[in-house]
Every structure is written in structure tokens, then in C-alpha cells.
Write a protein that binds this DNA or RNA. Structure first.
Length: 376
RNA sequence: GCGAAAUUGGUGAAGUGGUUAACACGCCGGAUUGUGGCUCCGGUAUGCAUGGGUUCAAUUCCCAUAUUUCGCC
């Protein structure tokens, strides 16, 4: 059954929104952070652990699941929920981002019909179209499907971005026409780099197609500046309907989640908590720390004081450092648990601040702790 | 006791009579934003067992000493 979003409140001093939706008898609140489970698993974690962290929606990837194990197999298994044993909501990315990063010769490989690219598994030539992406997502039976978009960097030249925005709108329309799963929402994606007019055009035209929700895309490419990201949000949000979910794709860092919320974003996803974990980094109230650093060798204290996660409740920095150094997977698990819980707890605090109309104070306090004297 | 070979950083090691001693691992840092799961990028021996000698110049040649390994008595 389609999840049904309700806007509960807009914070007094900013555009920050408090909202909720029901799913299988449970109520979920936004703003929300969605952990990424590319290949039908949040790397190193079980669904039980994910739920224990109070995660809501998790993200899975159309491209990866299409290549392996294949959409027909997942359908045969009874859909993604049954296949991976997760009874919370699942969002599938369309593959647009992967395809863009895998297309070798971008100008030649991206055509009106779709995108030619090579499989990262065996190098075979593949062709993905907006229709196929939606059909795959229909079969995966996720709760939210994403339109197949082109995801160019904000720094691409204006003429290219303009043509790309127009093509993404045509692709969105084509995808919507073949979308057949009545239990699945379909989101449109706003593109246009950091250009005001392109974002406005993209947002208005996408909203005309009447999607179940909207996302701001094209902000998580390499070397994108934070200023451009914030512009992209600011230029897109005014044209999006109030009563639909707004999703900032691929973000992010704690500060970016906060900035996104203040600008009117409801949901976020990002690989960073789990990728950072695998590389030995932990998010803490006082900034990101690298547990591989020698100074943690004998610190027999939790990763983060006052953290309620399983890792902090039971293990020390010295132990986690040892696991990471020795390349033991349990280290990656503990840090994944911690980092995801850190971002989820942050969204819990953000919701509380929205209720109290204190989001700006929360932001100031957060920056003071997280960045210390370094800047801002 | 005799003979032979060896001795280069934390480790395994390459190498040359002449400016910065290769490479790998480790170690020390950094990176990572719609995930190509062990990735990427830096730094890391002022010194080549010790002491003499030859030479304009020695880690590289010679001698002695020490240590190690192998063989013989």
C-alpha cells in the first residue's frame, strides 16, 4: 500500500518541516535519514540491527539488483521486502547515478532513448532506458521508485545542463507512463545544477507530471561545492508542493542534512556513514574522527560519550581501532552501527527542535561542537 | 677448531665506486555525499653490522672484529 505523507508543521523561523507517514501500521516521522543498502543489504548489518537503530526507509539500488541477482529472481522471491526480510519501507534508486558514472564516453553514450554503458561486474555492454528502470523497480516491488534521470555535475556548462534537464523531464514522463505498480510511489527528480532558471524550469515541469514525491538531484557529484548544493535546494524547493515528500539525493554529511532540513527537505540518503565506517571513521558530536589514528590505541572509552548505540554501549575506541587495523569485519559493523545511529539520532533531535521552533539554535550548537574553533 | 657465504629501514628485500638507496608490506597521516566492500592520495633509512684502510670520491674495493647460516673435523 502506498505510504501517505502528511505535513505536520513548518518551523517558525525556517522552512524546516515536520511530517509523518504510515506504513504497515507503523508511523514514521520526517525529517528522516535513509541508510543505503545497495545490494539488498546495508553493508555488514542485519535488518534487525537496522530496525534497532530506529531506521525508517532504507535505500536499495536498481542498477545493482538488475545485474545481480536480477529482477526476475527478486520477483520470484516475492519482492525485495521478502527477499531481504525487511518489513520497513524501501526506496529504490533508478540507476541514473551509476549509469552516469559508468558511461565511458558521456556525449556518445547518453542518447535520447537511454544510456549505453558497461557492467562493472563483467564489462558487458548494457543499455538502460527510463522505461526499463521503472519496470525493474516495479518488479523489485519497492515502496518508492525513482525516475530515471541524467545526473550531470553542477559544473557542466549551461547549455549542456539545459539540454540535460529537458531530457530528464522527457524521461520522467516516459517512466511515469509505464509505471504499473499500484502499491509503489514514483518520485520525480529536479535537476539543473546551481542555476536558478534551470532549477525553476525543471521543478515546474516535473511537478506538472504529478509525481507522488519529488527529489532534488545532481548535488552529490564529485567536487561539488556546498554553496552550489545549497543553491540547488533553494532554487528548487519553492516550486514543490507542500503535501509531498521532498528528498535530497545522496546527502550526506551531518551539516548538510541540517542545512537541507532548514531549506525544506524531508528525507536524505547517503553512503557515507557505512563507507566511512569501513574505512575506520566515526561521526561524533565533536566532529569526524579517524579511529586508525595512533592516539586511540589505548583509549578504553566509547567512540562517543552519551551515544546510545550498541557499539558505544559495549565497546571501546581501542578495541574498535584494533579491529579496523586488523581488517576484521566486526570493526566495520560496529562503526556502521554507530555512524548510522548517529545520523538517525541527529534527525530525532532535529524533529524535536522543529517542534520547539529552535532549529537555528540547534544548528549553532551543533556547529560549535562539531567544528570547534576550526570555522564558522 | 678449520673453510665458505652473508650482514642494507619496523619487516621482506633491490641496487651502485660519483647529485634525491628501487619496490613491496608495515607504520604515520589525509580523502571518501543517489556505494565498483578491503579503495584512493601523501609521508616514512642524513644512511647500507662495527672499526680501520685504498681513492678526488665508498653502502659498493681491501683488512680486522662481531653476529648469523651452511659444510668439515
Amino acid at each position: 500500500m502506498k505510504l501517505d505523507y502528511q505535513l505536520k508543521k513548518v518551523e517558525k523561523n525556517t522552512k524546516a518541516r515536520l511530517g509523518e507517514f504510515q506504513y504497515l501500521g507503523k508511523t514514521y516521522e520526517t525529517p528522516m535519514f535513509m541508510p543505503v543498502g545497495t545490494q539488498a543489504t546495508v553493508k555488514t548489518l542485519s535488518p534487525e540491527e537496522i530496525k534497532e537503530m530506529h531506521a525508517g526507509i532504507i535505500l536499495a539500488n536498481t542498477y545493482h539488483l538488475w545485474l545481480r541477482p536480477g529482477m526476475d529472481l527478486v520477483e520470484k522471491a516475492g519482492g525485495l521486502h521478502k527477499f531481504m526480510n525487511y518489513d520497513g519501507p524501501i526506496l529504490t534508486d533508478s540507476g541514473g547515478y551509476q549509469v552516469f558514472s559508468l558511461a565511458k564516453n558521456k556525449k556518445k553514450d547518453i542518447t535520447e532513448e537511454g544510456v549505453h554503458f558497461k557492467s562493472h561486474i563483467d564489462g558487458q555492454n548494457l543499455f538502460l532506458t527510463p522505461e526499463l528502470s521503472i519496470q525493474i523497480q516495479n518488479k523489485l516491488d519497492s515502496d518508492i521508485a525513482m525516475s530515471f534521470d541524467e545526473c550531470p555535475p553542477a559544473r557542466a556548462d549551461y547549455e549542456y545542463l539545459k539540454a540535460s534537464v529537458e531530457r530528464t523531464i522527457r524521461w520522467a514522463k516516459r517512466g511515469k507512463e509505464v509505471h504499473k505498480n499500484p502499491n509503489q510511489m514514483l518520485f520525480g527528480i529536479v535537476q539543473g545544477g546551481a542555476h536558478k532558471d534551470l532549477r525553476e524550469y525543471s521543478a515546474k515541469e516535473t511537478v506538472k507530471l504529478d509525481f507522488d514525491g519529488y527529489s532534488v538531484g545532481g548535488v552529490a557529484n564529485d567536487h561539488e561545492s556546498k554553496e552550489d548544493m545549497y543553491k540547488a535546494i533553494d532554487y528548487s524547493i519553492p516550486y514543490l508542493p507542500e503535501n509531498k515528500l521532498r528528498y535530497l539525493m545522496g546527502i550526506g554529511e551531518p551539516i548538510d542534512i541540517l542545512e537541507g532540513v532548514i531549506r525544506g527537505i524531508d528525507i536524505f540518503d547517503c553512503v557515507s556513514p557505512t563507507r566511512l565506517a569501513r574505512h575506520g571513521h566515526a561521526l561524533t558530536k565533536y566532529g569526524k574522527i579517524n579511529l586508525k589514528n595512533a592516539k586511540y590505541k589505548e583509549e578504553f572509552t566509547p567512540i562517543c560519550d552519551h551515544c546510545d548505540c550498541y557499539a558505544c554501549q559495549n565497546y571501546t575506541k581501542a578495541y574498535v581501532r584494533h579491529l579496523i587495523t586488523a581488517n576484521e569485519t566486526f570493526g566495520a559493523r560496529l562503526l556502521s552501527i554507530h555512524n548510522i545511529r548517529f545520523l538517525i539520532r541527529m534527525t530525532e533531535q532535529i524533529r524535536e527542535a522543529i517542534k520547539n521552533n529552535t532549529i537555528l539554535e540547534y544548528k549553532e550548537e551543533f556547529i560549535k561542537n562539531y567544528y570547534g574553533d576550526k570555522n564558522e
